[in-house]
Amino acid sequence: MTLDSTNAPLLRVSSVSKAYGDVVALDDVNIEIQQNEFFALLGPSGCGKTTLLRSIAGFEDPDAGAITILGAGSGAGEGEQIDLLSLPPNKRPVNLMFQSYALFPHMNVRKNIAYGLEREGLGKDEIAERVNEVLITTGLTDKADVRPAQLSGGQRQRVALARAIVKRPRLLLLDEPLSALDRKVRAEMQIELKRLQHEVGITFVVVTHDQEEAMSMADRIAVMHEGRVQQIADPVTLYSQPANVFVADFIGTGSLLRGIVANAVLLLRPESVHISADLAGAQLQGEVVETHFFGGSSTTSVRVAEMETLIVASHPGAPKFAVGERVGISWNADDAILLEDQP
């Protein structure tokens, strides 16, 4: 997949704010999403992810700001940004996969999937053809005549996905598509979603509160916190160059150390931390409080006197030190990440 960054973005969210009474759900949100991108909105529960998706889909009206989408195909409006907020939800070229799937309980799988195409006024044959195609893509052919109530969670999720992608929207919004699934199914579905996105060539915006999920699937991620976008970057940049303490804490694991560098927070990722028996040559000294062995690698947690956070080191092989041992801690200055201290 190629990202053509010279092109105008497919979706542009500009200075969007939304409050419910005293609760600020979105606070001056700015996001640009490129065509064919797999974009993730990541943040803890209640940070405004659903509100943003619902604003794009037309079910919430932002208090301020603009949301525009690139005009489709050829002819009038091509290459121009169309104002989404002036369109009613049923006229927006975006499809939303709801967090609860929102499948129609009184229609079977085939009818659920065909519903959106029928609304476009397509011919019977074309609808049948496209529904069958999508049933195959999502592996639901043998469930076509079954009602949602008779499906498992994973199957329902796929019907919801099929119902959205069969419309071939320019932009597909997925609200925590995998959160209702158990761990094993979820891992399979992450791969499947990614594969599907390749196959159908639709721009995906996936909402999740699971950082691993976002990191493994998305091309770019917007990290949100309390209605504000904290950072937008690709997974590697988010991990190695977090914009602030919140992002550093939310993405990956690591130790945030205060008091080592004046007025700054030092972020040490576990793989950058070296521990050794050499106390004198080390930058810090501490006592091992915990070790974990994961088979191929292990982590060692060290408490440094007068520091509130533990320093975690990871290294290949079995733990080298026992709980209670005193160790020296060192790191390369290049691997340490300095962040502005926020109250």
């Binding site: 009613p88 939800p89 049923n90 499809n95 939303l96 709801f98 129609f104 309980p105 519903y115």
Partner: peptide, 25 residues
């Protein structure tokens, strides 16, 4: 579930259409 009506609308149904396809049945 009001999301069912929103889903219909998201799939292209007008309000009247969503009423007769989802709410009423």
């Amino acid at each position: 579930d009001r999301q069912l009506i929103e889903a219909a609308s998201n799939l292209g149904a007008s309000r009247v259409r969503a009423f007769f396809d989802v709410t009423l049945p």
